[in-house]
Write a protein that binds this DNA or RNA. Structure first.
Lengths: 147, 147
DNA sequence: TAAAACAATTATCATTTGACAACTAAATAA
DNA sequence: TTATTTAGTTGTCAAATGATAATTGTTTTA
């Protein structure tokens, strides 16, 4: 059992280094792709909506570790820029569901397109088997640690 | 070859979702652990130094995607707080190597300790074999994509 | 040796971000 | 029904961050 703990601590060290590397690589892949009309925080919100829409404001607030007032403000700015919009919902009238507007979708598609090109460069020389291993590794990590 | 491209594009989608999940999880694990005397950017710099020391200011600037003037300013503030220090180096006298001070090391150890506890919680119920798979998946991803 | 490039610093400014208090409206619990 | 909780908004303020210009000293290159 003691050995087990030691093993887990080494795994933790590995995990720290890994998450740091993920941050760096994704920052590199994403560098400069965001439209000039939005701030970094706003980009990150749009990305979240892109991946999880439709989503409530509370959920954005919680997932982005941002207070409700600040989340609300940034969403208002994004709405004013015509990049996202509130969806009518019948259930609980306190909850506001948010989704990208067609323009917001377009803006994010352009960004993602650029990131995709860079990513494809990164994996260009990999064979089918390597790619498959990559996909499996991601699935495993996402299932067990990064949900 | 066309199929290959389609496969790669699906892998890209998977990667986007994964990196977003990594960001969220690591933000959750790290939430509130940083000492009150430093800002988020400063924490991120200290973490980088912790993982890569000794490191030059240019390297920090490049890896953290921060301009040299701003990196220099934040490092000055960290030095003033006694958390990091410049290392004398004989080679190129333009380059300044940075490392954590004993106090900086202590501060980061405290933070990492908290993160470690949360991480151990997260993996508490895993068996030896699962942990091994986890470690292998990380190694694979870090070798092929997140360097 | 002179010119160019590199590593880092200082100073300044505008913008972004985070925190907080006070508030409205809707849903739920007592 | 009243009280409480939940979801979201508005306004304000200070601090953190990002961008840029100008400068110093050191190393390389021509």
């Amino acid at each position: 059992m003691e050995e087990q703990l030691e093993y887990k601590k080494r795994l933790f060290q590995k995990m720290i280094g890994f998450t740091s590397a993920v941050h760096q690589t994704s920052a590199t892949l994403t560098k400069g792709v965001k439209s000039d009309e939005i701030t970094p925080v706003q980009y990150s919100i749009l990305e979240h909506i892109m991946l999880h829409q439709p989503v409530t404001i509370s959920e954005i607030s919680e997932c982005q570790h941002m207070s409700m007032p600040n989340t609300s403000r940034e969403l208002r700015k994004l709405s004013e820029k015509g990049l996202c919009e509130k969806v009518e919902t019948s259930a609980d009238r306190r909850k506001q569901y948010i989704r990208l507007s067609p323009e917001g979708k377009r803006v994010m598609d352009v960004s993602f397109q650029l990131v995709e090109e860079r990513f494809l460069q990164l994996i260009q020389s990999m064979e089918a088997r390597e790619l498959e291993e990559l996909a499996q590794a991601i699935d495993l990590l996402q299932a067990k640690v990064f949900r």
